[in-house]
């Protein structure tokens, strides 16, 4: 059972692929269209700045491949910046168009009495506790590192949030497209369980 991790030339994808292997699946780090479309599920990772990442994705034509995956009905999970890229646009260093698979914007944290980046372990609060991605999971902490956050247009795309002086979008999902703002591969046991649930969606297995 293979999961494709989309390689578009940025970031370190080793930790994600190892986390998938620890769960008993094959993690293939690849920028090859066929390999991505033949996988059971696809992960879009990402670190760095929004505009820069979109440029890298477009350079290799990877934006079209990711859209194909989204339209195919195959489970697609964006992690961290990878989740942000799924949305309509981002305002990091100017306005940049995203992949526009999910409607919404990526905005800066408003000024307030908290440190930016939002970096560390924060507690998930489930908006859709029955969603297959989070069903039966505990309200534990996961590991965040980000300076911008997602405001989805539709509240029903929100699966989980966390509190950082304001509600911060943590998990989103619509049809076969999901996103996690935190790093599940760096989030201890709870992160592993969340990844496991995503992998179960990829293979059509029921968890719990």
């Amino acid at each position: 059972m293979a999961i494709a991790i989309v390689d578009y030339g940025i970031g370190n994808l080793h930790s994600v692929s190892k986390a998938i292997e620890r769960l008993g699946y094959e993690g293939i780090v690849t920028g090859d269209r066929d390999e991505i479309l033949n996988a059971e599920g696809v992960i879009l990772p990402g670190v760095g700045a929004f505009g820069d990442a979109m440029n890298h994705i477009r350079e290799g034509g990877m934006d079209h491949v990711v859209l194909e995956v989204a339209n195919s009905g195959k489970p697609l999970l964006g992690i961290c910046l990878g989740m942000q890229l799924l949305f309509t646009e981002g305002e990091e260093h100017g306005i940049h168009q995203g992949l526009n698979i999910l409607p919404g914007k990526v905005v800066k944290f408003e000024d307030g009495d908290y440190k930016i980046p939002h970096m560390g372990w924060n507690r998930l609060e489930y908006k859709q506790p029955d969603h297959p991605l989070v069903r039966d999971l505990y309200n534990g902490h996961v590991y965040f590192v980000h300076s911008y956050h997602v405001k989805p247009d539709h509240a029903d795309d929100l699966i989980a949030v966390c509190d950082y002086g304001q509600p911060v979008t943590a998990i989103v999902g619509r049809d076969n497209v999901y996103g996690m703002q935190f790093h599940p591969e760096k989030s201890g046991e709870l992160g592993t369980l969340l990844l496991r649930n995503f992998l179960a969606l990829c293979t059509g297995e029921r968890t719990n």
């Binding site: 370190n12 080793h14 930790s15 190892k18 986390a19 620890r22 590991y143 790093h183 591969e185 760096k186 989030s187 201890g188 046991e189 992160g191 592993t192």
Partner: peptide, 11 residues
């Protein structure tokens, strides 16, 4: 570092 990244699930 490489081996640790493959083994642990925290930063």
């Amino acid at each position: 570092v490489r081996r640790t990244a493959g083994e642990i699930s925290i930063p």
